[in-house]
Every structure is written in C-alpha cells, then in structure tokens.
Amino acid sequence: MATGGRRGAAAAPLLVAVAALLLGAAGHLYPGEVCPGMDIRNNLTRLHELENCSVIEGHLQILLMFKTRPEDFRDLSFPKLIMITDYLLLFRVYGLESLKDLFPNLTVIRGSRLFFNYALVIFEMVHLKELGLYNLMNITRGSVRIEKNNELCYLATIDWSRILDSVEDNYIVLNKDDNEECGDICPGTAKGKTNCPATVINGQFVERCWTHSHCQKVCPTICKSHGCTAEGLCCHSECLGNCSQPDDPTKCVACRNFYLDGRCVETCPPPYYHFQDWRCVNFSFCQDLHHKCKNSRRQGCHQYVIHNNKCIPECPSGYTMNSSNLLCTPCLGPCPKVCHLLEGEKTIDSVTSAQELRGCTVINGSLIINIRGGNNLAAELEANLGLIEEISGYLKIRRSYALVSLSFFRKLRLIRGETLEIGNYSFYALDNQNLRQLWDWSKHNLTITQGKLFFHYNPKLCLSEIHKMEEVSGTKGRQERNDIALKTNGDQASCENELLKFSYIRTSFDKI
C-alpha cells in the first residue's frame, strides 16, 4: 500500500482533458527560462521544448504516446526543470519506465491550478516501474492521483506527508504495488545497510526511497516546507523545498512566496507586481503582455491589467481597466465587458449561442446573426445582446428569417469595421425574408467608422429604411451602385405612401 494514499474509496472516473512563447529569463536562482504550460502528445517531438525550461508557468501534460519505446527515452533528460506552477499529468506514455532521468531536479509542483483537485496525476502508464522524482520536495496545493499503472512499484516507500501538507485526498490505487509483488529495495538494503531515512506512518517504520538508488530526502521537522541542505541544516524561511546553503534567500532552489532578481522575498516591493503567484514583474512586463494579447485571437491570451499590486489576466467583477495605466478602477454604474472572439468572429444561430455573449459591452471581433427560429426570440436576444455598444469588426445579418427588427441591439452605437466582410463591408444584410426595420432612427444613433453597407434580398425592408441608415451611420456616399439592390429590397412591402385627393359631386333626387 502506498504510504499516505487512500484505498478502496469510491472515486469519480478520471477524465483526461485534452506555445513556446518565453516569458522571460528567471535569473540567477533558476538555471534556465520560464516556459508556458505545455500539452505534449502523440510523439516526442515537442518534448524537446523543455530543454531550457527551469519553470513551467502553467501545467505540463505528457500523454497518448503509443509508439514510443524505452530506448526512445534513454537520452532524454531535462535537468534544468525545477518547478511547475500548476500540475504534472502523465497518461498512456508507452515505453517510459521512470522519471528519474527525465526530470531529475523537479523540486516543486505548486498546484496553482489543479487537474480535478490533483497536482500530480500518473494514470495508465503501462510501462512505468517507478516514479523516480527523487528531488520532489513540495506539492504546495492539491493532491496526488496514481492509478492503474500495472508495473509501478516504489510507492509504499514514499512518505507523501513530507511532500504535501495533507495526504487525506491522495488516491493511489490499482498499481502493481497493490499486489505486494514489488519487493522494493532501498539503497544499501541488499548489503544489509540502512542508507535512507525511515519514518513512521500508520504504525509502520519504513525506509523512504524513490528507487533502488535514490533515497527520499527527509528534512528535520523544524525546517517545515522550506527544505534543508545535504547536511540537514534548514533553508531560509522564504525558500521552498530545498537550498544549497542554509538561511540564505539567494540560495533557495525555489521560493515559498515570490522570486525577485535572484532572491526569494515575502512580497513584491514597489515598483514590482505579483505575477502568477510566484514571481515579481515590473510595469513594462505587464504592459507588454497586455499589448501582445490586445489584437491576438490565441486562446488563453489575456490583456493583463494591474489590481491590488498584482498583474492579473482581467479586472475583477465591479472594476474596469483604465487604459492609460492598466489599473483596475471601480465602475460607475454597470461595468464594461470586452469579449474577445477566439477566431475573430462568432455566429449567433440560437439563443444558446447568444447567451455566451451575455453582459458583453464591447465585441472584439465580428458578429454573424443567422437565426431561423426560436421561442420568445426578441426578448431572449435583447437579454443577451442588448448591452453590446461596440463591435470592432463587422455585423452580418444573414438568412435570419425569424427577425423582424434589429432593435434587440438596443445599445449598439459603434461598428468600427477594423475587419470587413469580403474585404469591403462593415454591415452586411443578406436574404432576411421578414426583416422590416433596422432601428427606430428617431431614437437610435449608430456610427460606422469604416467599410460599406450591403443589402440584398431583404424583400420587406424598404429602401427608405436603408437610406436612413446611410445618413445616420455616416456611410452615405461610400456605397457603390450594386451594394444596395434596388429590386430585391422592399419588393414585397408597401414602401411608397402617396396622399390621394378626392373630389365629389353631391346629387339628390331633384338636383344634379
């Protein structure tokens, strides 16, 4: 039985969820670079991206490699990797027998973001014989899940209580170790020597080791999670996991709180800001991140802002960003909400898709409305799209047979046209069989910064309504002859009103 693990408890099935942008060198404390989270699957090609990484700022997932063999891993080693800020997950990587050479110096898994409450997941690794993470000293947050690894031993010899604050939620089941077939031998045991430290858990006094050649490092209890030197002297209180010299914040392997210019500090002093819960960055760093993602459509890219001495992905609820200094300031009234469309555009074809934009005031991208039916549609669209004030790209209304009016965009005031449909149009209306009105132009103002209007096959939309939009939106004169079809717009509506004058002759039985 794995020490510190839980057996036999019912657990939810383990679901495996399925960018080499360097964020800056980590400095003297770390020998390499800070790398983003990685999802490495199918083959070993991307694994080489770990070569210079000291910190993975995010998670590391290595999974679904069915053609790899043990010899493929023999020359692979990433000794610079010290810390993973989120979680480490391995799933069905064939041929991998140990992690001792792959990650010989991995010391800390912070667990800032977890995989279903777990910071370390080893699942269905069919050839893994031992973990071998002999320098792993601290899992700051989260638990361990090690399950269905039929060859995995050296679990009962690990004292997880020396690595985690609590072992109650560890789930370590259905491994070879369960069948008591392992016969784990710690260093020196074969020669009758006791080389590794022994600890007591559940009444068992057991030597602690990761492999037959690597003991588990056990520091004096007084050192807590700070770690200790090879001689057993406690590291500085700002260290986490390990250090090369005692009581020196510049000799830590990793930091308990924050890293700044080669030393570990309790908090980031001005003019620095907390970033990702582990390091200090200056304003320029946060500003660069903001600008890199301002026009990016890459998933996970955030326009970072500053709030409460932190550089964070977005302002919290009730705050909006001051564009001059990136500071989050309290909103006066309802907060603006910028919604970034991942692929640059979004099609609204149902109430469900409209709900995804609920509360958005600025759309960074283009909207395509293609709704053919739905219950209580006008009210639903207004509830979900009615706060949109600005669209950076274009607005396209296409084959939306259920629409009679666009009044559900009740606050839309600006279409920038930074991206144009077919390279020309910022407003595009095609084949809307029941569209009769755009907006009530006596109450609604709309500016279209650039781009043209396109109207074709809107049989109940009168040309007068379209011409009014040209005047109000500032697009009059931009359109070419064929942009607004004269014969297919309003051709099934009563669009022309003329005053009919009647004269009559009164007659009676005795007068003409």
Rank of each mutant, 00 (worst) to 15 (best):
I62V: 07
A254K: 00
V173C: 13
E97M: 02
Q299S: 09
Y304K: 05
N242D: 10
P269C: 03
R145H: 04
T189N: 05
L174W: 14
H214G: 02
E49F: 06
F66S: 01
N202Y: 13
S225L: 08
G333C: 15
I158L: 11
C243G: 00
T45M: 15
L152R: 01
E124T: 03
P31H: 14
Y259P: 01
Y272V: 05
P330I: 13
C286N: 00
M137F: 11
Y154S: 02
T320W: 08
K224E: 10
G95S: 06
R141Y: 06
C234H: 00
G192L: 10
D277F: 06
F283L: 09
R69A: 11
G262H: 10
K80N: 07
G37I: 02
Q287S: 06
S213T: 14
N195I: 12
E181S: 15
R110H: 11
I185N: 14
R208K: 07
F66H: 01
G58T: 01
K217V: 07
D247W: 12
N282T: 09
Q303W: 04
G111L: 01
P197Y: 07
I40V: 15
K191H: 06
N257W: 08
N295R: 11
V281M: 04
S213L: 12
L44I: 10
L114V: 03
N105D: 14
T199G: 05
C153E: 04
L99A: 11
N43A: 13
R162V: 07
K67N: 08
N295G: 14
Q276C: 05
D178I: 10
L99C: 06
C196L: 03
D184M: 14
I172P: 08
M65G: 02
D247H: 03
P271M: 08
R145S: 04
N170K: 06
T189G: 14
H291Y: 06
H226V: 06
H28W: 08
E238M: 07
G142C: 02
E49C: 08
R74F: 05
H127N: 02
V121H: 04
H236T: 04
H302D: 15
R256F: 14
V144K: 00
T329S: 09
K80A: 12
K310P: 02
S317M: 06
T140G: 07
S225Y: 11
S112L: 12
D72E: 04
V121A: 08
